[in-house]
Amino acid sequence: MVRSNSLVKKAAGVAQDVAAINFIASSKPLKEALKSANLLKTLKFNTLISGEHGTGRHTLASLMMPDVPCVHGDDAELYTFIENSPQLIVDDIGKIDLYPKFFQTLKKHGTQIIAIADETINLGEYTSFFSVRITLPPLKERPEDIIPLAEKFKMEALHLFGEDEESEFELDHEKLDISGNAYSLRKSVFLQYLASKIGKDEILDLMEAYITCHLDEGEEIYRRYLYLYEVPLIKAGTKRFKSQLKMSQVFGLNRNTLRKKINEWKEYL
């Protein structure tokens, strides 16, 4: 099917708008990366985007080259894409076996590329092939982006489960996980949302499923899994009542017993 130029331009514009919306840039490093991306959209420069997984490399590449193929470095069809595509996004360039063949083929066909790589990539003499190199820092080095990105994921969760954007669900910023950048952050936001909506029966079902998967014939099974109940209870009590005295009164426990419980599960608290 032949697509008209107007439809192609419209599709590219939509893809570009989506990429721009998804690329959260509140920190200085990402503002600079976004500025560079916008400048490079109309320039035929080969660009290398590197960084950890989940730092926004693919979103930035899509913003710079909307509506172009994206092929993995170890894809069997890589060279077919190069031969037939004036522009190309190459994901995980570090997986390419033969750099000489790869770069020679790019030069032969005049294919402009954006390459996506891990932060540790070493291209040796071929580094100079890329006129522009952009490195995206991990989230831990750009805290200004964490909350805006978390709020974006919160909106994703609300839309996914049919909630209104005015939902009373509020994020607990202390429980946001950025160990895996955007991937772990999105997961922690979704888990917070689900935790705010889950009921008693669902909690019991989840605990049963977890214990069933991890149950073995070891000793003291009951005692080993007791922390799944007691740790959340102690955490919630600490957050709500602030003092061990008040907690012991509400829980109906002797203060010494409560202290023993806290000390017993200290690795989880």
Rank of each mutant, 00 (worst) to 15 (best):
V2D: 02
R3P: 00
S6I: 15
L7A: 07
A11W: 04
A12L: 03
A12C: 09
V14K: 00
A15P: 00
D17R: 12
A19H: 01
A20Q: 06
I21H: 05
I24M: 01
I24D: 00
A25G: 04
L30N: 12
L30Q: 12
E32G: 00
A33S: 11
L34P: 05
K35Y: 08
L39E: 11
L39M: 09
K41G: 06
L43I: 15
K44M: 09
K44N: 15
F45G: 03
T47R: 10
L48H: 12
G51L: 08
H53M: 14
H53I: 15
T55E: 05
T55G: 07
H58V: 14
H58E: 15
T59W: 13
A61H: 09
M64K: 05
M64S: 01
P66G: 06
G73N: 03
A76C: 02
A76R: 04
F81G: 06
F81N: 09
Q87V: 06
I89V: 15
K95F: 10
K95E: 12
D97K: 14
P100D: 14
K101G: 02
F103D: 03
Q104G: 04
T105M: 08
K108H: 08
G110E: 05
G110V: 04
A117I: 03
E119S: 13
T120F: 04
L123Q: 03
Y126K: 13
Y126R: 13
T127C: 08
S128F: 06
F130G: 10
F130Y: 11
F130R: 07
F130H: 08
S131F: 01
V132P: 00
V132G: 01
I134R: 00
T135Y: 02
T135Q: 04
P138Y: 08
P138F: 07
L139S: 02
R142L: 06
E144N: 01
K152E: 08
F153W: 07
F153A: 07
K154Y: 02
K154I: 03
K154P: 01
A157K: 00
L158W: 02
H159D: 12
L160F: 03
F161L: 13
E163F: 08
D164M: 04
D164F: 00
S167A: 12
E170V: 06
E170H: 07
L171M: 03
L176W: 04
L176G: 11
D177G: 02
D177E: 00
S184L: 09
S184P: 02
R186H: 02
Q192S: 13
K200V: 11
M207L: 15
A209R: 14
I211S: 05
I211M: 14
C213M: 12
L215A: 15
E217R: 13
E217F: 09
E220C: 11
Y222P: 00
R223G: 08
L226V: 01
Y227F: 13
L228I: 12
Y229Q: 06
E230R: 13
V231R: 07
L233Q: 13
L233E: 11
I234M: 10
K235Q: 15
K235F: 07
T238Y: 02
K239Y: 08
K239L: 15
R240F: 00
R240W: 00
F241I: 12
S243R: 14
L245S: 14
S248H: 05
T257I: 07
K260D: 10
I262C: 10
N263E: 09
Y268A: 08
L269Q: 10
